[in-house]
Structure formats: C-alpha cells, structure tokens
Write a protein that binds this DNA or RNA. Sequence first.
DNA 1: GTATCTGCAAAAGATTTGCAGCAAG
DNA 2: CTTGCTGCAAATCTTTTGCAGATAC
Lengths: 139, 139
Amino acid sequence: MNREMMKSLNLKYTKKREVILKILEQSNTPMTAEDIFTLTSKELHMSFSTVYRSLSALTEKNVIMKELRQDGKTYFQINSHNHKHHIICTVCGEVTPIDQCPLHELENKLTQQTGYQITGHNLEFCGICPKCSKQAHNK
Amino acid sequence: MNREMMKSLNLKYTKKREVILKILEQSNTPMTAEDIFTLTSKELHMSFSTVYRSLSALTEKNVIMKELRQDGKTYFQINSHNHKHHIICTVCGEVTPIDQCPLHELENKLTQQTGYQITGHNLEFCGICPKCSKQAHNK
DNA sequence: GTATCTGCAAAAGATTTGCAGCAAG
DNA sequence: CTTGCTGCAAATCTTTTGCAGATAC
C-alpha cells in the first residue's frame, strides 16, 4: 500500500497509517487492535483511537478485512482476496491457517436453496494442536 | 430438561432456570441474553446476572451451546447435537437456518493435514435475503 | 486554507463479579 | 443447615465518540 493507492481511496497518507499497514503486511496471521497498538507503539507514538479509526477506514475501503472471533476480539488482516481460515488451539491459543476455503461450492448450493445472495462468511475451527495433545498425554 | 436431568448435572432446579430453559426449548432460533431476559421477564422477575449466570452454567454442562456472531452478541441455543448454521441478512437481519452441516468431512481431512484434534467450529454466512433483494431491485 | 487525521478522556454496549440475602436439597 | 442461586450495583473489557488541536495536500 503506497501513497497513490491511498490517494485513489480518498485517504490521507500519514506516518501512522503507513506503520499500521506495514505491520499488517508483514504479519502472516490476523491481528487484534491491541497487537497493532503494541507493535506500532515501538516505532512511534500511537493512540488506540488512531488504531481503531485507521482500521475502520481501511476496512470500509476493503483494504483490510475484519472478523470477530469466539474469543470476543476483532482480528484484522490485509485483504489478499485469497482469504484464509484458521484453526485455533483451545489450550495454547496457537493459530494454524487452513489452505483452502471449502465454502464457495456450498455457497452456490445455498443460493439455490434459500434465494439468498451470499456476500460473505465466517468460519472458525477450534481444537487442540498436536503439541498440546502430546503434553496432555504425557501427564 | 427436568428436575432429574438437572440433578444429574449438579445444578439446582429453580423456577428461573425452568423458565429460561422453556424459552430456549420453544425457540427455533438462537437467542441473545437480552432476548431471554425480555421473554422471561414477562413470566417472572428476572435479572441480567441470573440470565448470564444460568446460561453460563448450562453452557458448561453442554445443555446449551453458545456462539459469538459478527454482530458482537452471543447467541444461545439448546444443544440438540444435530447443530445448525445460519445465513443472516445484512439488510433486515432475517435469520435462515441451513439444513446440513457441511464441515464434518472437512474436519477429518484437516485432522490428517494439521494434526489438530478438532473439537468444534463456528460458521456464519451473511448475505441478502430474497425479500431485501427484491426491494432493492424495485427502487 | 480546509478537509481529514489524531489524541485524550469520557461514553458506550455486552458481559462479569463482589457481596449480602434467599432458596433448594 | 449448607451449598448453590439470585439481585443489585459496580467493575470489566473492547470498541466508539466528542471535541480541540495538528497535519496532509
């Protein structure tokens, strides 16, 4: 994301937004507002309102995507269009991405069955990661 | 849910819980704490703490299930084991149940791929219901 | 210059908790 | 009579907002 792209979205290119976007682009997993606040704060002064307002502006323009997970926190990630889902370990919280999204096929079927125009979905698996399974076994 | 079943779960059988469970059993769609508070309040005096604490006790014993949706509210439903997912209209908020759950197959595949013991999932579709599509078209 | 962004502190909305009194078993 | 349930009000947690000052363009 650079100055021109921001301009074309009618968003001003500020140092804060630059750093927020850099953090998101470098992350390989969705992040909470708090994560982003903590990381950006290492580079410059940041306030929670700026984080939330920037994330919200970028979400509206579809630059980033947000999802509310079962832990009650909202996670943000760059909108790469080949979106991913995740499995979250209920023991240690480890997050593992799932390569394929298995739902597009199903969405077509559902459109036929229900008449809904489907515009999105949220999918979240939870379970116990191999490491934690092993530890439980050893106890 | 009756006195004996509650007893076997080490939960006391109170009038309040009886009414909360009745409401949930009669509902064909997941409900928020507020929904339950409003409905139960028509039959007896109820407080939000009692609603939340009862729902939380029943969730722990797997009598009911909860899910946090993208609207930021937690929805509760009787745990019928043949669980359902829903499509939610982004315009009018209408909720339509989806008959089959398409994920059990996928879960087996994922267990092989990732080594996770998968214990649950959350799936939420959103879209525009036929009624709202039609109205938008007519404008 | 002016529209937009930022910071602070205060507000909001959903849920949880401490504590004292009450009811079920 | 003892353990667990209830009500109230206050606290919590994440996110949003009002307003005054600062910055991008």
